[in-house]
Amino acid sequence: MANSSHSKPTRQMEYEKKQHKEEMKQQVITFVLMILFTFVAFGMVIMEVNSYFVIPTLIILAIVQVAFQLYYFMHMKNKGHNMPALMMYGGAAVAGLTIITFSSIIWW
C-alpha cells in the first residue's frame, strides 16, 4: 500500500468506522451481561440463598465476568493478542498456585 501513509481511500475509512461501531455494540452487550451477573451475585447473597452451591456459583460468575472484561473490553479476542494471552494465563496459573500455597501453609 504505497499511499497508506498519505491518504487512505474513504471507502476504507467508512469500512473501519463501521467495524469500530460493530465492536462497540458487542462491548455494550458485554457490559449489560456484566451488570446482570453482578445483580445475580449480590442478589444471591442478599436474599441469603442457602446452599452449598452459593460460593462456587459466585466464583464462576466472577471468572466469567473477568473473561468478558479481558476478551471484550481489553480486546484479547482480537488478532495479535497471543502474547497477552500467554502473559495473562501464565499470570493466572502462578496466581492459582500462590493462593493454594498460602492457604495450605497456614491451614495444613
Binding site: 497477552p84 502473559m87 495473562m88 501464565g90 499470570g91 493466572a92 502462578v94 496466581a95 492459582g96 500462590t98 493462593i99 493454594i100 500455597t101 498460602f102 492457604s103
Partner: peptide
C-alpha cells in the same frame, strides 16, 4: 499485567 495478577494473588492468598 501478568505480574500484577501474581502480586494481587499473593494478597488474595493472604
Amino acid at each position: 499485567l501478568g505480574g500484577e495478577t501474581v502480586l494481587f494473588a499473593s494478597l488474595f492468598g493472604t
